[in-house]
């Protein structure tokens, strides 16, 4: 790429102001909508990509009554509900992306709410495409990586292929009163507890890996793991694992060769609108 001539910002500003004062609005059928920050949009721009539209997918899936009550092992109804909800939300997201001819969705914000009777999953992101406008062909990718991460990754020869996720809900095991009494004064590993938690965590991770493999991924980056008891049922513990499945599309990994900089600002000074109002 030859570096473009650096234009005079004043001249460009004038050009913009004139076009606004003189030319009518384009009036095309639809304008581009994106929730990318300007930084991200410009980054995409510098890599020859552009946002197409804001897309979302939401699914609310019911959880049958009674599944959170005491039991043993995996709460398969909740686990299934979670997986159904994520799959349905992702399907809708991909559907909206295809409809606007996007090649994929970046910067997906994932919101999962587990309630006693239903699990809500909300995915919001921006569909993107190369400026050259080649046809996407095939399934659009979905990624919770920011546009910035997407550009970096792409520059290095990798592409996201899809969201990898997995969840597992389990009942905390119980000890019989007798066992509990016996262990009261001892230092002892509660092996059944260890095992239950361990298994659940493994199961969530395994599910995530499987979904990555299904999407044709070679790896999963930015995995985030959440775990903890349900607020409404303390004896039920949920584990989730999220990440973006990626695969190498170039012949080999492309090195970035970063420069070293010594910043003189105390914090990264960015335009922050709220600062106008004081603290």
């Amino acid at each position: 790429m030859s570096s473009p001539p650096t234009a005079d910002p004043r001249a460009e500003m004038l050009q913009g102001a004139r076009s606004l004062a003189e030319a009518p609005p384009p009036g095309e059928a639809r304008g581009i909508t994106s929730d990318l920050s300007v930084d991200e949009a410009l980054l995409l721009h510098s890599a020859g990509w552009e946002p197409v539209d804001l897309v979302c997918g939401v699914a609310v899936v019911s959880v049958p009554v009674g599944v959170w009550n005491w039991g043993q092992g995996t709460i398969s109804a909740a686990t299934d509900a979670h997986n159904t909800a994520v799959e349905s939300a992702a399907r809708q997201l991909r559907g909206e992306c295809t409809k606007v001819h996007g090649h994929g969705v970046v910067g997906v914000r994932v919101q999962v709410e587990v309630r006693p009777h239903h699990i809500d999953v909300e995915l919001v992101g921006t569909a993107v495409q190369p400026v050259a406008g080649t046809d996407g062909g095939g399934t659009p990718f979905v990624s919770d990586l920011s546009a910035r991460d997407f550009i970096l990754l792409k520059g290095a020869g990798w592409m996201p292929v899809g969201l990898a996720f997995g969840a597992c809900f389990v009942y905390a095991p119980r000890r019989s009163a007798g066992v509990a009494m016996k262990q009261k004064t001892q230092n002892v590993e509660l092996t059944n507890f260890t095992e239950a938690m361990y298994t659940a965590r493994e199961s969530a991770m395994e599910r995530m890996q499987r979904s990555a493999l299904d999407a044709g991924g070679q790896g999963v980056v930015q995995v985030r793991v959440t775990e903890g008891p349900m607020s409404f049922a303390r004896h039920a513990v949920g584990f989730t694992a999220w990440g973006t499945a990626v695969r190498l599309v170039a012949d080999s990994h492309q090195f970035l060769r970063p420069e070293l900089v010594l910043p003189l600002d105390d914090a990264v000074v960015t335009f922050e609108a709220q600062s106008l109002r004081g603290k």
Binding site: M1, Q15, H45, V131, L260, P263
Partner: peptide
Amino acid sequence: MRRFKEFDEVPAPRPTVRLT
């Protein structure tokens, strides 16, 4: 926002690592 000129390249940002 209204596009007032054809797409032209903007220089790609330089990847950096903080030296601190």
